[in-house]
């Protein structure tokens, strides 16, 4: 039985729709060398290379709806996201034996907000700085609403905001208030 947020989890405004996705599994892939043994294991198990600096990628295409997203978080960390629970568990188990790195399951520790609409950029400009908005294929960790958020974009028309779970309420409240004023020119 999953915990639920205490409030309505979808925010809608002119040109903007924000919803909370509770079904995303997340893991931190930690490694000591982005080109080493662990990276090779990821490529073999997940079917994708570790993304480069500030990059995010979705795939492999062959997995369809069960595709994963990999997002660069630091020189020694990549986030793995997926909605297919079984696939996710298999990947985590398979990487447990990979050397020179480890997998830390973070499911439930982050909240994933899906943000769509033409005014995504306006929203991000009101939460953070001008470097916070990711272009497609990018994942940018920055200060939004005074908390740390990874914003990533692997599909056109959709930006994901990944925030530490304990700050989700704070971020959502800020977004809600901002969206409420979107009607003002």
């Amino acid at each position: 039985m999953a915990d639920t947020l205490t409030r309505e989890a979808t925010i809608e405004a002119d040109g903007l729709r924000v919803s909370v996705d509770l079904a995303v599994h997340i893991a931190s892939l930690r490694y000591f060398n982005a080109d080493g043994v662990f990276a090779a294991a990821v490529r073999s198990v997940v079917g994708m290379a570790l993304p480069g600096v500030l990059q995010a990628a979705m795939g492999p295409a062959s997995w369809g709806a069960g595709a994963f997203t990999l997002a660069w978080r630091s020189p020694t960390e990549t986030l793995l996201l997926g909605v297919d629970g079984e696939r996710f568990s298999n990947v985590v188990a398979a990487l447990a034996d990979a050397g020179e790195g480890c997998v830390v399951d973070q499911s439930g520790g982050f909240r994933v907000l899906r943000v769509c609409g033409e005014r995504v950029f306006d929203l991000l400009a009101r939460l953070g700085g001008s470097a916070s908005a990711p272009k497609i294929g990018e994942g940018r960790r920055s200060r939004l609403a005074d908390v740390t958020v990874l914003a990533l974009c692997v599909r056109p028309e959709e930006t994901l905001l990944i925030v530490d779970r304990v700050y989700a309420e704070h971020l959502l409240t800020w977004i809600r208030e901002t969206a409420a004023d979107f009607a003002t020119p």
Partner: peptide, 18 residues
Amino acid sequence: GRRVGALYRPRKHLPAHA
């Protein structure tokens, strides 16, 4: 700016707050 009331500073909430 928005930093008034509940947003004055980022507050951490328990997973089982409700």
